[in-house]
Design a protein around this nucleic acid. Sequence first.
DNA 1: CTATTATGCATAAGAAAATTATGTATATAT
DNA 2: ATATATACATAATTTTCTTATGCATAATAG
Lengths: 111, 111
Amino acid sequence: MKNSQLYKGSLNTIIMKLLEEQHRMYGYEITQKVKEITKGELNITEGALYPALHKLEAEGLLDVEVEKVDNRLRKYYKLTEKGTTETVNRLAELEEFIKNMQTIVNPKLSY
Amino acid sequence: MKNSQLYKGSLNTIIMKLLEEQHRMYGYEITQKVKEITKGELNITEGALYPALHKLEAEGLLDVEVEKVDNRLRKYYKLTEKGTTETVNRLAELEEFIKNMQTIVNPKLSY
DNA sequence: CTATTATGCATAAGAAAATTATGTATATAT
DNA sequence: ATATATACATAATTTTCTTATGCATAATAG
């Protein structure tokens, strides 16, 4: 992941949220999707993405299906049942995190 | 910093924002303030805080003044001029980050 | 009166998560 | 023919944090 180092620690949550929404995606597609929805502000690096996907798979949160499209390899990932449950938790944590950060940035709005 | 690892990378920004607001604070005070405004959800560990303060000082973003209060040592930190300028940038980055994360969590709201 | 908790600093060892730099391979556009 | 896009992967290093200590004084509880 690139840019303002604030994104450190949020990659797994981003991956899981996108997979919840899109049902299945492959690695490169994830990088492009994130770039698109953040208008180019967040570029996930391959060195961060692929190890993250492998780890989530090893933890039983993702399943993988390999397919060949246009003679190129694609590894489609989707959430397992366990992964779907865990995504709910992660998103709740993310919303709490965002709320807390907003309170810190703009304390007056929290009254 | 404890909890959901989403906070990774946000400690420096938190410190700088609080110092911008409070003018000067000492380490322990920062941990208590953060605990207070996040209602106990975010606990900054000493092992993260003190090295972070030292690094910000080494980078010329913070100045330190040592004082003895009630026979106990306190190191008061405040933003340097450079630190104040940098804080503006960091907060802008934080707001962008929050906005991007919200778009990822709730893509429908972004239209 | 003594032991725990709170205040206040610090650092070292290790883990986690990223960046940076490669490497392989095919397809498309210049 | 060469660069860019697509698509995966991993190794070395760096950054950032947790965990575990360590020291010292003050206040509170048993």
